[in-house]
Simulated scan of single mutants.
Amino acid sequence: MIREEFKKLPLHKKIHKLYTEGTFVVGIRYYAHKVNLYLLDNEYIEVFYNHKLDKIDKIDFLNQDHTRMKFYLDQINLNI
């Protein structure tokens, strides 16, 4: 599945696809969210879970230029 197809999916279908076809890589804490990183079709995807509201706020492709990368790189080696 290409990026644009995935981006157009409704949230519940993105969740289903990640949990059934993706591979969980690592989870980090980032401000009010627990961010789970998944690998799907050679793409890294972040799931932003707001534990206070008990809901997923956002699912998006990993931005390699974001400062959040340091949290991932401290824990794992991402071959990007």
Rank of each mutant, 00 (worst) to 15 (best):
T20E: 12
T20A: 12
K13S: 14
N42M: 09
D74V: 01
L62E: 10
E43M: 07
D74G: 08
F71K: 13
L9Y: 05
K58F: 02
N42K: 12
Q75V: 06
T20S: 15
I80S: 10
M69Y: 01
I45N: 02
T67D: 14
H16K: 15
E46K: 05
N79K: 15
H66D: 15
F71T: 02
K14Y: 02
N63A: 11
N42R: 12
R68Y: 11
N50L: 07
T67R: 14
R29K: 14
K7N: 12
D65I: 08
E43R: 08
D54T: 11
K8L: 12
L11Q: 10
K34M: 13
H16D: 15
Q64M: 13
I15G: 04
K17R: 14
A32W: 06
F24Y: 07
K52L: 13
H16M: 14
M1F: 03
A32V: 08
V35G: 07
D65E: 12
A32L: 12
K58Q: 07
Y19A: 00
G27V: 10
Y49M: 07
F71S: 10
E43D: 09
I45L: 04
I28M: 06
E46I: 01
Y31K: 14
H51V: 13
Y31L: 13
E5R: 05
G22D: 02
V25D: 03
D57T: 06
D74N: 11
Y72L: 06
K52A: 14
R29L: 13
F48C: 03
I76A: 05
I2T: 10
K8W: 00
H66S: 15
I15S: 03
L18G: 03
Y72P: 00
K14F: 03
H51T: 13
F6Y: 08
D41G: 05
L18I: 03
E46A: 01
E5L: 09
A32G: 00
N63G: 01
R3V: 11
F6I: 02
K7D: 11
Y30H: 10
L11T: 07
V26A: 11
L39H: 04
V25S: 01
N77A: 12
Y30A: 08
R29P: 00
Q64G: 14
K14R: 04
Y38P: 01
F24M: 05
Y72C: 02
D54S: 15
E43L: 09
H16F: 15
L39N: 08
L62N: 07
N77D: 08
I56K: 06
G22T: 02
K34F: 13
Y19C: 00
K34E: 14
D41I: 01
Y44W: 04
N77C: 02
A32K: 13
H66V: 02
G27E: 15
K14V: 03
I2H: 11
L18V: 05
H12F: 15
P10N: 08
N63Q: 06
K52T: 08
L78D: 01
I2P: 00
E21L: 12
D54W: 13
G22E: 01
E43G: 01
Y31D: 10
F48H: 08
L37V: 04
L73I: 00
L40Q: 00
I56L: 08
N79D: 13
F24K: 09
K8Y: 00
L11I: 12
F6W: 04
Y31A: 11
I28T: 06
L39I: 08
T23Q: 15
D65N: 13
L78Q: 03
D60A: 10
L78K: 01
Y44H: 05
Q75C: 00
Y72V: 02
D57M: 06
